[in-house]
Computed example of a mutant assay.
Amino acid sequence: MAKFIWTSQLNVGIEVIDQQHRRIVEYINQLDDARSNGHSREEIGYLINDLVDYTISHFGFEESLQEEANYPFAKSHKKVHDLFTQRVSDFQARYDKGEDVSKGLNSLLVTWLFNHIKRDDADYVEAVKAYLQHQKDFVENKKGLFARLFG
């Protein structure tokens, strides 16, 4: 399988989220490299576990941001994450039973991540950006207040 190349098309415009998405892409490519280069089953298993753990952690972070931003479709977005997590857990279980799922898992990850970023994630960006800007403005205003009081 060809490397999953990160392009600016995949940026959502929230740097911390874009960094996390790029890290997931790195994991996907590491898994494909390990599979293609005949790495041991144990090494591939570690990579799958790391990729899944990181992705679930990313989902939690993204969901927290959506809740804080009062994104109206946060629960629906979480359900999409939950369904995907279940699919990946099924792949992990099959792998643990001895099945070679790395090619199918890699294909699922590439397709799902690309589509998820372009569709589902794009929907929450405006709400989260507005929230983050509000937080930044609040902090900046407090800095000015403290400077006037204690400066």
Rank of each mutant, 00 (worst) to 15 (best):
Q20S: 14
R35F: 15
G144A: 11
F61P: 03
V12M: 12
I5L: 09
S8V: 03
E140N: 06
D53F: 10
F114W: 06
V12D: 07
V80S: 11
F4T: 05
K118V: 12
H39P: 00
H116A: 08
I5Y: 08
I117W: 06
A147P: 00
A74Y: 01
R22T: 03
H81V: 03
K78R: 15
N115D: 14
G13V: 05
D53Y: 03
H81S: 12
V16I: 15
L47K: 02
E43M: 07
Y131E: 08
K78S: 09
V139F: 07
R87A: 15
Q30R: 15
Q9H: 14
F84W: 12
Y27W: 08
E126R: 05
R94T: 00
V80I: 12
V139M: 08
L108Q: 00
H58Q: 02
L51H: 00
V139P: 00
P72K: 01
Q135L: 11
F59A: 01
Y46C: 10
E99H: 09
R35Y: 14
Q30D: 14
V88Q: 05
L51Q: 06
I44F: 07
V125N: 03
N11Q: 10
A74I: 05
D123S: 08
G38L: 01
V25N: 07
R148G: 06
Q19A: 15
F114M: 04
H134D: 08
A127Q: 01
F4W: 15
L145K: 14
R148Y: 09
P72H: 03
F150A: 07
E62K: 14
F146V: 11
I117N: 02
S102P: 05
S64T: 08
I44N: 06
T55F: 13
V139W: 05
F138G: 01
N106H: 15
I17Y: 04
E99A: 07
K129H: 05
Y27S: 09
I24M: 14
Y46N: 04
L83D: 15
A127C: 00
W112G: 05
S102G: 09
R87C: 06
K3A: 14
L145C: 01
H116I: 00
Q19C: 11
N115R: 13
F4A: 03
H21F: 10
K97Y: 13
E26H: 09
G45S: 14
Q66W: 06
Y46V: 01
Y46I: 01
S107F: 13
F146S: 02
T111Q: 13
V88F: 10
S107M: 10
Y131S: 07
G38I: 11
G45N: 12
H58G: 02
H81I: 13
F59G: 07
G60K: 12
D121I: 01
A2G: 13
A130D: 04
W6K: 03
K75C: 12
E67P: 00
F84H: 10
D123Q: 09
R35L: 03
R41P: 04
H116S: 02
D120S: 07
E43S: 09
